[in-house]
């Protein structure tokens, strides 16, 4: 219950920030509408709604990395954590308290994208529900990345690294905006060694009802999410001890 009080504080802080509502919920919607408009004039297979929507739902999660990193970095910078470290909250309370509030926001973002996609012609199938369900491990992956960054960077650095660099890198290396085969070589190898493209291909497979196609991508997502979460916990504990 102590953890829920802390999570509640984080939920309020995130939802009261208007930038959260714009980037977290509005921006992916704008992208779907814009790219669908382009697709209507110049057809590109990559931007067909059944390909585009899973990619956008994954790309939108890059903002969850930004939210989780920002909230930790701000708490660290304001001495709030120093106060809370003298309370009975445990390290696990902090990690869950930062992670749990962002999962429903991620799911809401995904649902909004699919509702928009349905209006743009996406067939209504039960696979949409599965796609929303499978976004949860992907969101944990992105949130863990944010926890890790927020534990070592200050809020200004978080803005630059998570807000600009990571958002772009996760986009380029995800196969959402262009087919990775077009670049090929080392770029493609690096992309497939990272989790972003696997998350997108997993979501595309789920939406298409190709459940054997989920693998091995799901393992990549879960593997990276686990490693990043463990690293985030270790780095958070390190900065806690540094106090």
């Amino acid at each position: 219950m102590r953890m829920l009080a802390f999570a509640n504080k984080n939920t309020k802080e995130i939802l009261r920030d208007p930038l959260t509502l714009f980037f977290g919920l509005g921006f992916p919607l704008v992208l779907i509408l814009l790219l669908s408009a382009i697709q209507a004039n110049i057809p590109v297979e990559l931007f067909e709604i059944q390909h585009l929507t899973p990619g956008i739902t994954v790309f939108g999660l890059a903002f969850m990395t930004l939210f989780s990193a920002t909230i930790i970095a701000k708490d660290r910078g304001s001495s709030l954590l120093q106060r809370l470290y003298t309370t009975p909250l445990t390290p696990m309370d902090y990690i869950l308290g930062y992670t749990l509030p962002i999962i429903p926001i991620s799911v809401a973002q995904c649902v909004i994208c699919y509702i928009a996609a349905i209006f743009l012609g996406l067939d209504i199938t039960v696979n949409i529900l599965y796609a929303v369900l499978f976004i949860i491990p992907v969101s944990i992956l992105y949130i863990a990345l944010g926890l890790l960054c927020g534990s070592v960077l200050n809020d200004k650095q978080v803005g630059g690294i998570c807000g600009a660099l990571l958002t772009n890198l996760s986009a380029w290396l995800s196969g959402v905006w262009f087919d990775l085969d077009l670049v090929g070589g080392a770029f493609k190898k690096i992309a497939y060694a990272l989790p972003f493209v696997h998350a997108v291909e997993m979501e595309r497979a789920v939406l298409a009802g190709d459940f054997t196609g989920i693998f091995p991508h799901l393992w990549w997502v879960i593997g990276y999410a686990t490693v990043l979460l463990v690293l985030a916990v270790l780095l958070f504990l390190r900065q806690m001890k540094k106090q």
Binding site: E13, S79, R83
Partner: peptide, 12 residues
């Protein structure tokens, strides 16, 4: 502890 910097949550 009431830390040196005012440790309140500004958005709450």
């Amino acid at each position: 502890v009431s830390p040196q910097e005012t440790a309140v949550v500004p958005g709450l």
